[in-house]
């Protein structure tokens, strides 16, 4: 049954493709696309920073082992690394917990990577460094989101943070190869530390600009809604906006429609292309300035099947 096979290829295959695509889509998107708005209902949660009691001796050991070679044994800085004296424990904790420090190699750009030490060790080091100077700087915060208002947080985020981190928290490139990082995997403590201490190119926002209450609202918004967005409507495309949407619209939207046209219509014009036709005989590259006059004056040939 070659005829049957040909037919099934021409029709059943596209049908199967559509069915497969739809079912695949249902499989892939089903969990993500059941908009459960209930999920955004806030349950006031009390989040304490770790209750770890800092061990300054252990902190000193780790500091001497890892940091002192560049920053100096009492964190006084060196030609290749800045002084850490006067920086608060919050600053040190942020740079350690984000993996920016220690650097991959001396002189390298700080890059986000898994932290070298665990939470308790980071705190030990941070408290040790903070203890090296009389000025205590910004401490490691305890973030309490009880009663935080994500709506206020959203407003602050749109006003202050979105300009660099984008409104969806995806992050973007600043000048000079520096990036505003994605906020999708940052912790509550890190957000507060970053806002208050301004790591790298980020401004630092004192309580005169973002009050403590606003900051906890902001942290609540980032950790609840930026990191776990209510995302009905399907695949989110990375939250980078209309360019990604445009590619989907063009290559999948228009593309599928063109495929449908390709299926319905004839693939190649019947018969040999470019055969010299009477009436319009040019097959070459140039203009066909010749053969002036109205067309169709040479019609009426003997192409009828049967004259009666």
């Amino acid at each position: 049954m070659r005829r049957a096979r040909w037919f099934s290829r021409r029709l059943a295959v596209p049908a199967a493709v559509v069915i497969a695509a739809v079912s695949l889509g249902m499989l892939v998107w089903w969990p993500a696309s059941t908009p459960s708005l209930a999920g955004t209902v806030l349950t006031a949660s009390v989040t304490k920073s770790t209750n770890h009691k800092p061990n300054l001796n252990l902190g000193k050991t780790l500091f001497d082992e890892t940091c002192a070679s560049c920053h100096g044994s009492s964190a006084e800085g060196s030609a290749v690394a800045p002084s850490l004296q006067g920086l608060g424990a919050g600053t040190i904790d942020l740079w350690l917990s984000s993996g920016w420090m220690p650097l991959a190699a001396p002189g390298a750009q700080p890059a986000r990577k898994p932290p070298k030490y665990d939470r308790a060790q980071n705190i030990d080091i941070a408290q040790y460094v903070a203890s090296l100077s009389n000025y205590q700087g910004f401490p490691i915060p305890k973030v309490n989101l009880k009663g935080a208002n994500v709506a206020n947080g959203f407003s602050v985020f749109a006003e202050i943070c979105a300009a660099c981190h984008t409104i969806t928290g995806a992050g973007d490139a600043l000048s000079g190869g520096i990036i505003a990082p994605s906020l999708h995997d940052v912790s509550k403590t890190q957000i507060v530390e970053a806002v208050r201490t301004g790591p790298g190119n980020m401004p630092r926002f004192s309580s005169g600009v973002i009050s403590n209450a606003q900051l906890s609202d902001l942290v609540a918004y980032v950790t609840r809604n930026i990191q776990h967005p209510t995302s009905p409507g399907g695949l989110g495309l990375g939250g980078v906006g209309p360019v990604a949407e445009g590619f989907v619209g063009l290559f999948i939207g228009v593309g599928l429609c063109v495929l449908a046209a390709f299926w319905i219509g004839d693939r190649t014009p019947r018969g040999p292309l470019g055969v010299e036709q009477h009436g319009d005989g040019e097959g070459g590259s140039g203009g066909d300035g010749g053969s002036p006059g109205p067309v169709g004056d040479d019609g009426g040939s003997d192409r009828e099947i049967q004259h009666v």
């Binding site: 049908a15 559509v18 739809v22 889509g25 089903w30 009905p232 449908a260």
Partner: peptide
């Protein structure tokens, strides 16, 4: 049932209907 099921069922219906009508015309 939500926009996802509405959309998927409508897409299925429209696509199958379109394939059916077009295949009638084509074959």
């Amino acid at each position: 049932a939500g926009d996802f099921w509405l959309g998927i069922s409508m897409a299925l219906g429209m696509l199958m209907f379109g394939l059916g009508v077009a295949s009638w015309g084509m074959f």
